[in-house]
Amino acid sequence: MSVPKPTCKDKIETEDELRSIIGEPSELVRKKVISYVDDHCEDFISRSPFLVISTSDASGCCDVSPRGDTPGFALVLDEKHIIIPERPGNKRIDTMRNILSNPKAGLLFLIPGLGETLRVNGKAYLVKDDILLERMAHHGKKPLVGICIEVEECFIHCAKAMKRSGLWEPEKWSEKNSLPNAAKILIDHTKIPDMTEKELNNALQEDYLTELY
């Protein structure tokens, strides 16, 4: 007997239908959201070396992008404003282009070894104020642009995803030599003629050494 293939056609169309399946959040979950950066959130951000930022353009096309640096690289300016340095990257500027057309953004701050994460939602805009950029200089190099978040929501997210994934448990990690090969993936995706996997891997490693800041 053949087994039918699963599809994504059996869709949930309304929030009421979704609630009938998922249920309602607890009182603790409902009340945990605050509208500003308090001392706890500021301390969390000061310890975080990594975040992801989610944005979308005016038509709703979404993007999520990582940002990382030494702990505290994202600065809390006051209880309503956080600024993130835009370090050198691949110049696609997906996040920044989205912000120019739709200022809504979401942040997820992570601290290695800690299961709980900090979620921040708000309005984003791009800044070029030299005083702010100088505060975020690293190795004598200041970012060309900063991403400022005007905070609307802050809340702690529970550790269930981290515990399920074993993200911070080295014994659950794959062997390094079995991990996906970025150079091979890029060669297959870009199909640039006369470029070998070895050449591209060497170029990537050189870029990591010389272009981080």
Rank of each mutant, 00 (worst) to 15 (best):
M1L: 12
V3R: 13
P4F: 03
P6F: 12
P6N: 09
T7C: 02
C8D: 13
I12G: 06
E13V: 10
T14W: 10
T14M: 05
E15A: 13
D16H: 12
E17H: 12
S20N: 05
S26D: 01
V33D: 03
V33S: 07
I34H: 00
I34P: 00
S35I: 03
S35T: 14
D38R: 00
H40E: 15
D43R: 14
D43T: 15
F44R: 02
R47T: 07
S48H: 00
I53Q: 03
T55Q: 07
A58P: 00
S59P: 00
C62M: 14
C62G: 12
C62W: 05
D63W: 09
D63P: 03
S65A: 13
P66F: 09
G68Y: 12
G68P: 04
R87I: 02
R87M: 08
P88D: 07
I93K: 04
D94I: 11
T95V: 04
M96Q: 04
R97S: 11
N98Y: 10
I99Y: 07
L100D: 06
K104D: 15
L108E: 01
P112N: 10
R119Y: 07
R119C: 09
L126N: 01
K128C: 11
K128G: 06
D129R: 11
I131R: 08
L133F: 04
M136T: 10
M136Y: 06
H138I: 14
H138L: 14
V145Y: 13
C148A: 05
V151L: 01
V151S: 00
E152G: 06
E152R: 05
C158V: 02
C158K: 02
A161M: 00
A161Y: 00
R164L: 14
G166H: 05
K172W: 03
K172M: 10
S174W: 11
E175T: 08
K176L: 12
K176W: 11
N177D: 15
S178C: 11
L179F: 08
A182R: 06
A182V: 13
T190Y: 10
T190C: 08
T190R: 13
I192P: 03
T196E: 07
K198Y: 08
N201I: 00
D207I: 12
Y208S: 12
L209T: 09
L212G: 06
Y213Q: 01
